[in-house]
Amino acid sequence: MADIVVKTEDVVKEYRMGSNILRALDGINIEINRGEYISLMGPSGSGKSTLFNMIGALDRPTEGRVYIDGQNMSQLSQKQIAAFRCHRVGYIFQSYNLLHVRSAHGNVTLPMIFAGISEKQRNEKAEKLLDMVGLGDRMYHLPDELSGGQRQRVAIARALANDPSIILADEPTANLDTITGREIIDLIKRLNLEQGVTVISATHDLKMLDVSDRIVDIRDGLVERIRNRDEIEIEVGEVGGEGE
């Protein structure tokens, strides 16, 4: 039996925009297996980022349930949700979301401070992680002194600080050039393969298809279809061909 790490049941999210109600998610049902690399695909406004927020406990669904590791997220206390965000998930955002007043090293140590890890241990771990993402020589630079690709590397190192079992990446390559984007994708894929981290990525970057195990197509707040890797490879070829 597959080991399901994330399961959503009829997840609905509505936003109130003045007097209008916008239904961003209209009943999403998906199951994600441990160790999988999943891409949530869809055009802007399709609801993929909203779903990403629901899975990462960054927002609450209006209706429906999200289960992580069999745990109904809506039943968790505030302290449990904070611990979940701190220990179980590593977030990577399109706009990096680094704290610009803290150095690369300071950003990577922050989640470890929240986890109560000793100063010595967190310094060692931050150095190791920044070395791993290729920023060993720019550890004490502020985010403003780093390029987009380097900032995203810091964000990846920060996401890994507390050894999460899930990496949630919201359009991690959208602000990067093709080559840097490719490097970031390769880095995330390596973590997925070597450390068995489950990767859930909201994206409309076609390069992400290549490395995904499955793609969940989201359209108008609904799951349009779920494709597995074999289908992906065929379609990537077609898309690449069309573009040339």
Partner: peptide, 18 residues
């Protein structure tokens, strides 16, 4: 879906750290 280790509670940071 099998239940993994239950989600613990987040610790309160010591005042000095804040």
């Amino acid at each position: 879906m099998q239940q993994r280790t239950p989600i613990e509670e987040q610790i309160d940071l010591p005042f000095v750290e804040s």
